[in-house]
Amino acid sequence: MLKVYGDYRSGNGYKVRLLLQVLGREHRWIAGDGLGGEPHRTNDLAGAEEPVVELECGSCLRGANAILNRLAAGSALLPRVPYLRTQVLQWQFFEQYSHEPNVALARFIQLYQGLPEARREEYAACKARGYKALKVMEQQLRRTPYLVGDDYSIADIALYAYTHVAHQGGFDLGAYPAICAWLQRVARHPRHIDMHD
């Protein structure tokens, strides 16, 4: 059975948990504190970026998006057509470099730190860059129901994680109707699970 180490309430942990739920993949979650505490895990995983998946063979995978690609292989969530698969990767890189560092960090500063005075300038910069990332998503989702065309994929899982809680970072999604419709489509998947379930 797969073992997953980390905090499933964090956006990166939630990505993996949502994928496993959608795939119906049996696993054991070994929880840790995503706010800085060490998860309960074996010594060889200490210091690794959360979440960490330990495969049945004993090998370990680190990094949420790498894990999504490995676990979704062979499923409908990872397209077999090379061009579409490349688009999935493009959205995952976008999530890691343009979306998550801004949307997730603004959420962390506001929700978990209470928007301290010392971080207000950083928070404002995150919000400005985060809105730019949301605009890119909005433009794509006006053209297609999911980020990579007509089908739900791990690109959607990767970006859903922090987008659906963006309001907790002070983002107003009211001006992004295509994103709002997409969030509803993702949440209607029959095997969907909420971040805090």
Results as ranks from 00 to 15, higher is better:
Arg70Leu: 10
Ser75Ile: 05
Leu68Tyr: 00
Ala46Pro: 04
Leu111Gly: 08
Leu45Glu: 09
Asn43Phe: 11
Ala124Tyr: 08
Ala76Leu: 14
Trp91Glu: 07
Ala118Met: 08
Pro82Cys: 10
Leu61Gly: 06
Thr86His: 15
Ala106Tyr: 07
Leu89Val: 13
Ala118Trp: 06
Glu100Gly: 06
Gln96Thr: 08
Val81Ala: 15
Cys60Tyr: 06
Ser59Trp: 11
Leu115Ala: 10
Pro116Arg: 04
Cys60Phe: 03
His40Gln: 11
His40Val: 09
Val81Gln: 15
Ser59Arg: 14
Glu54Cys: 10
Tyr97Glu: 11
Ala46Gln: 12
His99Leu: 15
Arg107His: 09
Ala106Glu: 02
Glu117Gln: 14
Val53Arg: 03
Val103Glu: 00
Gln90Trp: 07
Cys57Met: 03
Arg120Lys: 13
Pro39Leu: 01
Phe94Pro: 03
Gly63Asn: 07
Ala125Met: 08
Ala66Phe: 12
Leu61Ser: 03
Phe93Arg: 15
Leu89Gly: 13
Arg70Pro: 05
Phe94Ser: 01
Ile67Asp: 00
Ser98Asn: 14
Ala73Trp: 11
Gly114Ala: 02
Gly74His: 03
Ala125Arg: 11
Pro82Gln: 07
Ser98Lys: 12
Gln92Asn: 09
Val103Arg: 04
Gln110Ser: 14
Glu122Val: 05
Pro101Lys: 00
Arg80Tyr: 13
Ile109Asn: 08
Gly63Thr: 02
Glu56Gly: 08
Arg85Glu: 11
Leu71Trp: 07
Cys57Tyr: 02
Ser98Gly: 03
Cys57Ser: 14
Phe94Lys: 02
Arg119His: 10
Val53Ile: 05
Leu55Phe: 01
Ser75His: 06
